[in-house]
């Protein structure tokens, strides 16, 4: 009887410890390819990020003539992100911009609502908010999005809700929903745009993983007939040690930010309008 009691108590204590055990590194980086991952930075960590999207690898704009897109840069991003707490991070990015609005300054806020734990929380939950401001020169003629009749026309926003689960040390999956709002759109378009997406990471070796993400906007005009396509991508991600993550990917998306690639992805994989991209992330403890 005594042995059973000790065993039961041990089992109960062990279960309690397990229930509190947090699951870390569902994804290795705060972004997958185009999409925010469920991850946030640790408190006091600063992440310097450089992202790049080259030109079309094939199709009419690619091939040998552009060295498979490597001689063209459709978007470039430089950014700094910082962990205010273990759950809250902020960031600021400058992007060239691939859509109609260029020279963008993007402010990011990300908050981890729930972390996956062993036994208790089956899922991780994070929200990410993004505000983009175009600093491009105002057009002299009206009838275009960059006429900027009001300063607020330079702004667009995205809110993403991200649900994730790390099934094993080799396999993670996330689903996300997005709401993008642009203050000014053309008369055939709508200001608000709802999208859904998913992302996955498969650990291939100790340091390298395969990543994939896809984003699907719901919009009457966003179909292949009007040359709009879902933004999808796949790639490889290396953790080179010391807080350094290097990612190389192929995607049909030109823009780097949600406010850019969700409303304006018009590149078709089938026509060779995909591109090489990379992201270098270097974290420092400050």
């Amino acid at each position: 009887m005594k042995q059973i009691l000790i065993l039961s108590l041990t089992f109960f204590l062990f279960s309690s410890v397990n229930a509190q055990e947090k699951i870390f590194q569902t994804f290795k980086d705060t972004k997958v390819i185009n999409t925010h991952s469920v991850e946030t930075l640790k408190k006091g960590h600063m992440d310097i990020r450089i992202s790049h999207r080259f030109g079309d690898a094939a199709g009419p704009n690619g091939g040998w003539r552009t060295f498979y897109g490597l001689e063209t840069a459709v978007d470039v991003g430089l950014g700094v992100e910082y962990g205010l707490t273990n759950k809250t991070m902020v960031g600021i990015h400058r992007t060239k911009g691939a859509g109609p609005l260029k020279q963008n300054v993007n402010g990011l806020f990300k908050y981890r609502i729930m972390q996956q734990t062993k036994g208790k929380n089956l899922l991780g939950l994070t929200i990410a908010g993004l505000t983009s401001i175009s600093t491009m020169k105002k057009s002299s003629s009206d009838g275009v999005l960059h006429f900027f009749d009001k300063t607020s026309h330079r702004m667009s926003y995205n809110l993403s809700v991200i649900l994730s689960r790390k099934f094993s040390h080799r396999f993670s999956l996330q689903a996300h929903a997005g709401y993008t709002y642009r203050n000014l759109v053309s008369s055939i378009d709508k200001n608000d745009l709802v999208s859904v997406g998913f992302a996955t990471r498969i650990q291939l070796t100790k340091a390298m993983g395969f990543i994939f993400d896809g984003n699907f906007p719901f919009s009457d005009i966003r179909n292949s007939e009007n040359s709009y396509f879902p933004a999808t991508g796949f790639g490889l991600e290396w953790e080179t040690g010391g807080g350094h993550v290097f990612q190389m990917n192929f995607t049909n998306s030109k823009g780097l930010m949600e406010t850019d690639y969700l409303p304006y992805t018009q590149s078709d994989w089938g026509k060779g309008e995909y591109r090489l991209g990379f992201t270098i992330s270097r974290q420092f403890k400050v």
């Binding site: 505000t131 009206d142 009838g143 275009v144 999005l145 607020s152 203050n183 008369s187 378009d189």
Partner: peptide, 19 residues
């Protein structure tokens, strides 16, 4: 930061279209 973010989001919203 949260208050500032929500305020800036709400105050700068327009629902405009170009014809």
């Amino acid at each position: 930061i949260i208050c500032f973010s929500i305020l800036s989001f709400l105050l700068a919203c327009n629902k405009d279209k170009i014809e």
